[in-house]
């Protein structure tokens, strides 16, 4: 259960992960899930969209898959990012653990939590982040939130 992940852990994830699979991402450019995907893409992550209602379409240059198990085996997903209600989490976690033997992180967005599914993933050695947004954490840890007057918690006299 990682309700309050350490800064070091978040930094580690966001500097080592390369491929996110965003489950439940919206095709509507003003929905938060859509612009989290767009933002992660801008920051150099590969973002694989997962949304059964739009399977086969393209979002920010990537094919939309209907579910995690439909993602081709040669795409090395590091992080499964869940934009679904908490009730949908166990099914997604099971599919993720089944599909990606090397999965590093299961990330649940703000308001999304599932202790039991999280425990199952952690038992497999997968890091679980709950109730957080990778875009906000990236902005907080790597400076952008400074521009908005947010408390980044960063104290440093280095350039």
């Amino acid at each position: 259960m990682t309700e309050t992940p350490s800064e070091a852990l978040l930094r580690h994830i966001l500097t080592t992960a390369k491929v996110f699979a965003c489950v439940g991402v919206s095709m509507n450019p003003v929905r938060p899930s859509n612009y989290v995907a767009r933002y992660l893409g801008l920051k150099g992550f590969r973002v694989i969209p997962v949304n059964p209602g739009h399977a086969g379409e393209t979002l920010y240059g990537e094919t939309v898959y209907p579910e995690l198990s439909a993602i081709p085996a040669d795409i090395p997903v590091d992080v499964v990012d869940i934009f679904r209600r908490s009730e949908a989490v166990p099914g997604i976690v099971d599919q993720a653990l089944d599909r990606f033997p090397d999965l590093k992180v299961i990330w649940m967005q703000i308001g999304v939590r599932h202790a039991e599914a999280a425990a199952r993933a952690e038992a497999r050695g997968v890091t679980v982040i709950q109730n957080r947004c990778p875009k906000i954490e990236y902005q907080r840890l790597f400076g952008e939130l400074r521009m908005g007057g947010f408390n980044t918690g960063i104290i440093s006299s280095r350039l």
Partner: peptide
């Protein structure tokens, strides 16, 4: 993206300014 609030950044000093932002972060901390 800035106007849609999809990214954080400076647009116009009625909204945000780097000197003011430093003070805001300090007060929040």
């Amino acid at each position: 993206a800035l106007f849609n609030l999809q990214e954080v950044g400076y647009i116009y000093s009625r909204l945000t300014n780097p000197t003011v932002a430093a003070l805001q972060e300090r007060m929040a901390a």
